[in-house]
Design a protein around this nucleic acid. Structure first.
Lengths: 163, 163
DNA sequence: ACTTAACCTAGCGAAATAGTCAACTAATGT
DNA sequence: ACATTAGTTGACTATTTCGCTAGGTTAAGT
Protein backbone atom coordinates (compact mmCIF):
# COMPACT_ATOMS: atom_id res chain seq x y z
CA UNK A 1 0.00 0.00 0.00
CA UNK A 2 1.18 3.43 -0.87
CA UNK A 3 -0.17 6.92 -0.96
CA UNK A 4 2.28 9.38 -2.44
CA UNK A 5 2.41 12.79 -4.05
CA UNK A 6 0.71 11.32 -7.08
CA UNK A 7 -2.54 10.84 -5.19
CA UNK A 8 -2.09 14.02 -3.15
CA UNK A 9 -1.52 16.10 -6.28
CA UNK A 10 -4.54 14.55 -7.96
CA UNK A 11 -6.87 15.35 -5.06
CA UNK A 12 -5.44 18.84 -4.64
CA UNK A 13 -5.88 19.57 -8.34
CA UNK A 14 -9.42 18.22 -8.33
CA UNK A 15 -10.26 20.38 -5.35
CA UNK A 16 -8.78 23.40 -7.10
CA UNK A 17 -10.94 22.52 -10.10
CA UNK A 18 -14.04 22.22 -7.97
CA UNK A 19 -13.32 25.69 -6.65
CA UNK A 20 -12.62 27.49 -9.90
CA UNK A 21 -14.51 25.69 -12.66
CA UNK A 22 -17.99 26.82 -11.70
CA UNK A 23 -18.24 29.35 -14.55
CA UNK A 24 -15.68 28.26 -17.12
CA UNK A 25 -13.00 25.58 -17.60
CA UNK A 26 -9.75 25.93 -15.70
CA UNK A 27 -6.38 25.55 -17.41
CA UNK A 28 -3.72 23.27 -16.03
CA UNK A 29 -1.35 26.22 -16.16
CA UNK A 30 -3.47 27.99 -13.54
CA UNK A 31 -3.68 24.91 -11.35
CA UNK A 32 0.05 24.32 -11.66
CA UNK A 33 0.73 27.91 -10.58
CA UNK A 34 -1.73 27.97 -7.69
CA UNK A 35 -0.82 24.55 -6.31
CA UNK A 36 2.88 24.60 -7.30
CA UNK A 37 2.70 21.33 -9.20
CA UNK A 38 4.76 20.66 -12.32
CA UNK A 39 2.62 21.29 -15.39
CA UNK A 40 3.88 18.25 -17.28
CA UNK A 41 3.18 16.04 -14.33
CA UNK A 42 -0.31 17.48 -13.98
CA UNK A 43 -0.93 16.65 -17.62
CA UNK A 44 -0.12 13.02 -16.95
CA UNK A 45 -2.42 12.92 -13.96
CA UNK A 46 -5.28 14.56 -15.83
CA UNK A 47 -4.95 12.10 -18.67
CA UNK A 48 -5.83 9.42 -16.13
CA UNK A 49 -8.57 11.48 -14.50
CA UNK A 50 -10.13 12.01 -17.91
CA UNK A 51 -9.98 8.30 -18.75
CA UNK A 52 -11.74 7.62 -15.44
CA UNK A 53 -14.49 10.05 -16.47
CA UNK A 54 -13.88 12.38 -13.57
CA UNK A 55 -13.00 15.46 -15.67
CA UNK A 56 -13.54 16.62 -19.23
CA UNK A 57 -11.21 18.82 -21.26
CA UNK A 58 -12.18 21.68 -23.59
CA UNK A 59 -9.64 22.66 -26.19
CA UNK A 60 -8.79 25.95 -27.76
CA UNK A 61 -8.60 29.43 -26.26
CA UNK A 62 -10.76 29.75 -23.20
CA UNK A 63 -10.51 26.01 -22.79
CA UNK A 64 -9.34 23.94 -19.86
CA UNK A 65 -10.79 21.26 -17.62
CA UNK A 66 -13.98 20.97 -15.63
CA UNK A 67 -15.57 18.29 -13.48
CA UNK A 68 -17.78 15.63 -15.04
CA UNK A 69 -20.11 15.41 -12.05
CA UNK A 70 -21.08 17.30 -8.93
CA UNK A 71 -18.40 17.67 -6.25
CA UNK A 72 -20.72 15.74 -3.95
CA UNK A 73 -20.58 12.76 -6.32
CA UNK A 74 -16.77 12.56 -6.50
CA UNK A 75 -15.08 10.80 -3.60
CA UNK A 76 -11.44 10.93 -2.63
CA UNK A 77 -11.31 7.19 -3.22
CA UNK A 78 -12.42 7.76 -6.83
CA UNK A 79 -9.60 10.22 -7.45
CA UNK A 80 -6.94 8.17 -5.75
CA UNK A 81 -7.99 5.07 -7.66
CA UNK A 82 -8.07 6.96 -10.96
CA UNK A 83 -4.39 7.88 -10.79
CA UNK A 84 -3.46 4.32 -9.82
CA UNK A 85 -2.50 4.58 -6.16
CA UNK A 86 -2.81 1.19 -4.50
CA UNK A 87 -4.79 1.33 -1.27
CA UNK A 88 -4.74 -2.42 -0.82
CA UNK A 89 -2.25 -3.33 1.91
CA UNK A 90 -1.75 -7.02 1.13
CA UNK A 91 1.21 -8.42 -0.74
CA UNK A 92 -0.97 -10.65 -2.88
CA UNK A 93 -3.55 -8.07 -3.90
CA UNK A 94 -6.28 -10.00 -2.11
CA UNK A 95 -5.57 -13.31 -3.82
CA UNK A 96 -4.59 -14.92 -0.52
CA UNK A 97 -1.53 -16.60 -2.02
CA UNK A 98 0.98 -14.48 -0.12
CA UNK A 99 2.93 -17.52 1.04
CA UNK A 100 3.35 -20.41 -1.37
CA UNK A 101 -0.24 -20.64 -2.64
CA UNK A 102 -1.56 -20.08 0.89
CA UNK A 103 -2.50 -16.99 2.85
CA UNK A 104 0.24 -15.63 5.06
CA UNK A 105 -0.19 -15.26 8.82
CA UNK A 106 -1.27 -11.64 8.58
CA UNK A 107 -3.27 -11.73 5.37
CA UNK A 108 -6.60 -10.96 7.01
CA UNK A 109 -5.16 -8.06 8.98
CA UNK A 110 -4.01 -6.26 5.82
CA UNK A 111 -7.21 -7.06 3.98
CA UNK A 112 -9.25 -5.47 6.73
CA UNK A 113 -6.96 -2.46 6.96
CA UNK A 114 -7.25 -1.86 3.22
CA UNK A 115 -11.02 -2.18 3.36
CA UNK A 116 -11.11 0.20 6.30
CA UNK A 117 -9.15 2.90 4.47
CA UNK A 118 -11.18 2.43 1.32
CA UNK A 119 -14.46 2.96 3.16
CA UNK A 120 -13.01 6.03 4.89
CA UNK A 121 -11.94 7.64 1.62
CA UNK A 122 -15.18 6.70 -0.15
CA UNK A 123 -17.16 8.62 2.42
CA UNK A 124 -15.30 11.89 1.82
CA UNK A 125 -16.30 13.84 -1.29
CA UNK A 126 -14.95 16.98 -2.90
CA UNK A 127 -18.07 18.78 -1.67
CA UNK A 128 -17.16 17.86 1.92
CA UNK A 129 -13.75 19.45 1.51
CA UNK A 130 -15.11 22.53 -0.27
CA UNK A 131 -17.17 23.66 2.69
CA UNK A 132 -14.31 23.33 5.16
CA UNK A 133 -13.19 26.59 6.64
CA UNK A 134 -9.50 25.95 6.27
CA UNK A 135 -9.79 24.90 2.65
CA UNK A 136 -11.69 28.06 1.72
CA UNK A 137 -9.16 30.26 3.47
CA UNK A 138 -6.22 28.61 1.75
CA UNK A 139 -7.90 28.74 -1.65
CA UNK A 140 -8.61 32.46 -1.29
CA UNK A 141 -5.01 33.13 -0.33
CA UNK A 142 -3.80 31.16 -3.33
CA UNK A 143 -6.05 33.22 -5.61
CA UNK A 144 -4.62 36.43 -4.28
CA UNK A 145 -1.06 35.25 -4.70
CA UNK A 146 -1.76 34.06 -8.24
CA UNK A 147 -3.32 37.45 -9.02
CA UNK A 148 -0.19 39.20 -7.81
CA UNK A 149 1.96 36.98 -10.02
CA UNK A 150 -0.18 37.96 -13.02
CA UNK A 151 0.15 41.64 -12.17
CA UNK A 152 3.92 41.40 -11.86
CA UNK A 153 4.09 39.58 -15.17
CA UNK A 154 1.94 42.17 -16.91
CA UNK A 155 4.04 44.95 -15.47
CA UNK A 156 7.23 43.29 -16.70
CA UNK A 157 5.77 42.92 -20.19
CA UNK A 158 4.74 46.54 -20.19
CA UNK A 159 8.27 47.63 -19.33
CA UNK A 160 9.64 45.35 -22.03
CA UNK A 161 7.44 46.94 -24.68
CA UNK A 162 8.58 50.39 -23.70
CA UNK A 163 12.21 49.56 -24.32
CA UNK B 1 2.44 7.08 3.28
CA UNK B 2 3.60 3.64 2.58
CA UNK B 3 3.05 0.18 3.96
CA UNK B 4 5.23 -2.41 2.27
CA UNK B 5 6.62 -5.86 2.87
CA UNK B 6 8.89 -4.35 5.49
CA UNK B 7 5.99 -3.68 7.83
CA UNK B 8 4.15 -6.84 6.82
CA UNK B 9 7.22 -8.98 7.47
CA UNK B 10 7.77 -7.31 10.83
CA UNK B 11 4.22 -7.96 12.02
CA UNK B 12 4.25 -11.50 10.66
CA UNK B 13 7.53 -12.26 12.40
CA UNK B 14 6.32 -10.76 15.67
CA UNK B 15 3.17 -12.83 15.48
CA UNK B 16 5.25 -15.94 14.84
CA UNK B 17 7.32 -14.99 17.85
CA UNK B 18 4.24 -14.53 20.00
CA UNK B 19 3.18 -18.02 18.98
CA UNK B 20 6.43 -19.86 19.58
CA UNK B 21 8.39 -18.02 22.25
CA UNK B 22 6.29 -18.98 25.25
CA UNK B 23 8.86 -21.46 26.59
CA UNK B 24 12.18 -20.50 25.02
CA UNK B 25 13.59 -17.95 22.56
CA UNK B 26 12.93 -18.47 18.87
CA UNK B 27 15.71 -18.25 16.31
CA UNK B 28 15.39 -16.08 13.24
CA UNK B 29 16.29 -19.15 11.21
CA UNK B 30 13.07 -20.81 12.32
CA UNK B 31 10.99 -17.71 11.63
CA UNK B 32 12.60 -17.28 8.24
CA UNK B 33 11.76 -20.89 7.35
CA UNK B 34 8.19 -20.80 8.63
CA UNK B 35 7.29 -17.43 7.15
CA UNK B 36 9.50 -17.65 4.05
CA UNK B 37 11.31 -14.41 4.77
CA UNK B 38 14.97 -13.84 3.95
CA UNK B 39 17.08 -14.43 7.06
CA UNK B 40 19.36 -11.44 6.49
CA UNK B 41 16.40 -9.18 5.95
CA UNK B 42 14.82 -10.48 9.14
CA UNK B 43 18.01 -9.66 11.01
CA UNK B 44 17.79 -6.06 9.85
CA UNK B 45 14.18 -5.81 10.90
CA UNK B 46 14.88 -7.34 14.31
CA UNK B 47 17.70 -4.90 14.87
CA UNK B 48 15.08 -2.17 14.71
CA UNK B 49 12.55 -4.09 16.77
CA UNK B 50 15.18 -4.57 19.42
CA UNK B 51 16.11 -0.89 19.44
CA UNK B 52 12.40 -0.11 19.90
CA UNK B 53 12.36 -2.42 22.94
CA UNK B 54 9.80 -4.76 21.45
CA UNK B 55 12.00 -7.86 21.49
CA UNK B 56 15.13 -9.01 23.29
CA UNK B 57 17.79 -11.24 21.83
CA UNK B 58 19.69 -14.03 23.58
CA UNK B 59 22.98 -15.07 22.01
CA UNK B 60 24.58 -18.43 21.72
CA UNK B 61 23.13 -21.92 21.39
CA UNK B 62 19.57 -22.16 22.58
CA UNK B 63 19.33 -18.43 22.01
CA UNK B 64 17.00 -16.46 19.83
CA UNK B 65 14.46 -13.75 20.31
CA UNK B 66 11.50 -13.32 22.61
CA UNK B 67 8.99 -10.57 23.24
CA UNK B 68 9.71 -7.82 25.75
CA UNK B 69 6.10 -7.49 26.84
CA UNK B 70 2.79 -9.31 26.72
CA UNK B 71 1.22 -9.77 23.29
CA UNK B 72 -1.70 -7.73 24.58
CA UNK B 73 0.64 -4.78 25.14
CA UNK B 74 2.14 -4.75 21.66
CA UNK B 75 0.08 -3.04 19.00
CA UNK B 76 0.46 -3.33 15.25
CA UNK B 77 1.16 0.40 15.19
CA UNK B 78 4.13 -0.17 17.54
CA UNK B 79 5.63 -2.74 15.21
CA UNK B 80 5.03 -0.82 12.03
CA UNK B 81 6.54 2.31 13.57
CA UNK B 82 9.55 0.39 14.89
CA UNK B 83 10.67 -0.69 11.43
CA UNK B 84 10.21 2.81 10.10
CA UNK B 85 7.15 2.54 7.90
CA UNK B 86 5.60 5.98 7.54
CA UNK B 87 1.89 5.93 8.26
CA UNK B 88 1.64 9.68 7.97
CA UNK B 89 0.02 10.57 4.65
CA UNK B 90 1.10 14.21 4.40
CA UNK B 91 3.94 15.45 2.27
CA UNK B 92 5.29 17.68 5.01
CA UNK B 93 5.19 15.14 7.84
CA UNK B 94 2.65 17.22 9.71
CA UNK B 95 4.65 20.45 9.58
CA UNK B 96 1.97 22.15 7.48
CA UNK B 97 4.55 23.67 5.15
CA UNK B 98 3.58 21.55 2.16
CA UNK B 99 3.35 24.56 -0.11
CA UNK B 100 5.87 27.37 0.30
CA UNK B 101 5.78 27.64 4.08
CA UNK B 102 1.99 27.25 4.10
CA UNK B 103 -0.31 24.25 4.32
CA UNK B 104 -1.46 22.88 0.99
CA UNK B 105 -5.13 22.67 0.08
CA UNK B 106 -5.45 19.07 1.20
CA UNK B 107 -3.16 19.12 4.22
CA UNK B 108 -5.94 18.51 6.75
CA UNK B 109 -7.38 15.64 4.74
CA UNK B 110 -4.10 13.71 4.84
CA UNK B 111 -3.51 14.55 8.47
CA UNK B 112 -6.87 13.13 9.43
CA UNK B 113 -6.39 10.06 7.26
CA UNK B 114 -3.04 9.35 8.89
CA UNK B 115 -4.50 9.83 12.34
CA UNK B 116 -7.38 7.53 11.45
CA UNK B 117 -5.09 4.71 10.33
CA UNK B 118 -2.85 5.20 13.35
CA UNK B 119 -5.75 4.84 15.76
CA UNK B 120 -6.96 1.77 13.90
CA UNK B 121 -3.59 0.04 14.11
CA UNK B 122 -3.06 1.09 17.71
CA UNK B 123 -6.21 -0.71 18.74
CA UNK B 124 -5.10 -4.05 17.33
CA UNK B 125 -2.60 -6.00 19.44
CA UNK B 126 -0.70 -9.21 18.86
CA UNK B 127 -3.00 -10.86 21.38
CA UNK B 128 -6.01 -9.94 19.25
CA UNK B 129 -4.47 -11.67 16.28
CA UNK B 130 -3.36 -14.71 18.27
CA UNK B 131 -6.89 -15.72 19.20
CA UNK B 132 -8.18 -15.49 15.64
CA UNK B 133 -9.26 -18.79 14.20
CA UNK B 134 -7.61 -18.28 10.85
CA UNK B 135 -4.30 -17.27 12.37
CA UNK B 136 -4.18 -20.36 14.58
CA UNK B 137 -4.99 -22.65 11.67
CA UNK B 138 -2.29 -21.14 9.47
CA UNK B 139 0.28 -21.24 12.26
CA UNK B 140 -0.39 -24.91 12.94
CA UNK B 141 -0.04 -25.74 9.27
CA UNK B 142 3.25 -23.87 9.11
CA UNK B 143 4.53 -25.84 12.10
CA UNK B 144 3.70 -29.12 10.39
CA UNK B 145 5.38 -28.08 7.17
CA UNK B 146 8.48 -26.91 9.01
CA UNK B 147 8.61 -30.25 10.84
CA UNK B 148 8.49 -32.10 7.54
CA UNK B 149 11.34 -30.01 6.18
CA UNK B 150 13.43 -30.94 9.21
CA UNK B 151 12.67 -34.62 8.71
CA UNK B 152 13.62 -34.49 5.04
CA UNK B 153 16.84 -32.69 5.92
CA UNK B 154 17.73 -35.24 8.60
CA UNK B 155 17.02 -38.09 6.18
CA UNK B 156 19.26 -36.49 3.55
CA UNK B 157 22.06 -36.11 6.08
CA UNK B 158 21.67 -39.71 7.14
CA UNK B 159 22.00 -40.90 3.54
CA UNK B 160 25.03 -38.66 3.08
CA UNK B 161 26.77 -40.21 6.06
CA UNK B 162 26.22 -43.72 4.71
CA UNK B 163 28.01 -42.92 1.48
C1' DA C 1 38.06 -25.18 21.34
C1' DC C 2 33.98 -25.28 18.80
C1' DT C 3 29.49 -24.43 17.56
C1' DT C 4 25.56 -21.62 17.57
C1' DA C 5 23.09 -17.64 16.90
C1' DA C 6 22.71 -12.74 17.66
C1' DC C 7 24.59 -8.55 15.84
C1' DC C 8 26.71 -5.34 12.36
C1' DT C 9 28.01 -3.18 7.75
C1' DA C 10 28.35 -2.45 2.88
C1' DG C 11 26.49 -2.82 -1.31
C1' DC C 12 23.43 -4.26 -5.26
C1' DG C 13 19.55 -4.95 -8.79
C1' DA C 14 14.94 -3.86 -9.65
C1' DA C 15 11.19 -0.96 -9.29
C1' DA C 16 8.77 3.20 -8.53
C1' DT C 17 8.58 8.20 -7.99
C1' DA C 18 8.45 12.59 -9.59
C1' DG C 19 9.48 14.71 -12.64
C1' DT C 20 11.55 16.93 -17.64
C1' DC C 21 11.70 17.56 -22.62
C1' DA C 22 10.03 17.56 -27.11
C1' DA C 23 6.97 16.83 -30.65
C1' DC C 24 2.26 16.31 -32.12
C1' DT C 25 -2.80 17.19 -32.72
C1' DA C 26 -7.12 19.65 -32.21
C1' DA C 27 -10.08 23.58 -31.56
C1' DT C 28 -10.75 28.51 -31.37
C1' DG C 29 -10.47 33.67 -32.08
C1' DT C 30 -8.98 37.19 -35.36
C1' DA D 1 -6.15 31.30 -43.51
C1' DC D 2 -3.41 31.39 -39.63
C1' DA D 3 -1.45 31.96 -35.36
C1' DT D 4 -2.56 30.86 -30.68
C1' DT D 5 -3.93 28.21 -27.11
C1' DA D 6 -4.66 23.84 -25.07
C1' DG D 7 -4.39 18.94 -24.67
C1' DT D 8 -1.97 14.43 -25.85
C1' DT D 9 1.66 11.34 -26.18
C1' DG D 10 6.02 9.15 -25.51
C1' DA D 11 10.59 8.81 -24.30
C1' DC D 12 13.94 9.81 -21.08
C1' DT D 13 16.16 10.57 -16.29
C1' DA D 14 17.82 11.55 -11.52
C1' DT D 15 16.74 9.91 -7.16
C1' DT D 16 15.02 7.04 -3.75
C1' DT D 17 13.50 2.92 -1.64
C1' DC D 18 12.92 -1.98 -1.28
C1' DG D 19 14.08 -6.46 -0.60
C1' DC D 20 17.88 -9.01 -0.38
C1' DT D 21 22.91 -10.92 -0.43
C1' DA D 22 27.47 -11.36 1.38
C1' DG D 23 30.59 -10.85 4.56
C1' DG D 24 32.05 -10.23 8.87
C1' DT D 25 32.25 -9.79 14.48
C1' DT D 26 30.71 -10.78 19.16
C1' DA D 27 28.80 -13.40 22.89
C1' DA D 28 27.11 -17.48 24.99
C1' DG D 29 26.51 -22.52 25.72
C1' DT D 30 28.70 -27.52 25.57
Amino acid sequence: MRLTSKGRYAVTAMLDLAFHSQLKPVTLIDIAARQTISLSYLEQLFARLRRANLVKGVRGPGGGYSLCSNPSDISIADIVAAVGERIDATKCGGDANCQKHHACLTHDLWMELGEHIKVYLEKITLADLLIKNNVQKIAEMQDQEAQQVVEVRNYAELMNERQ
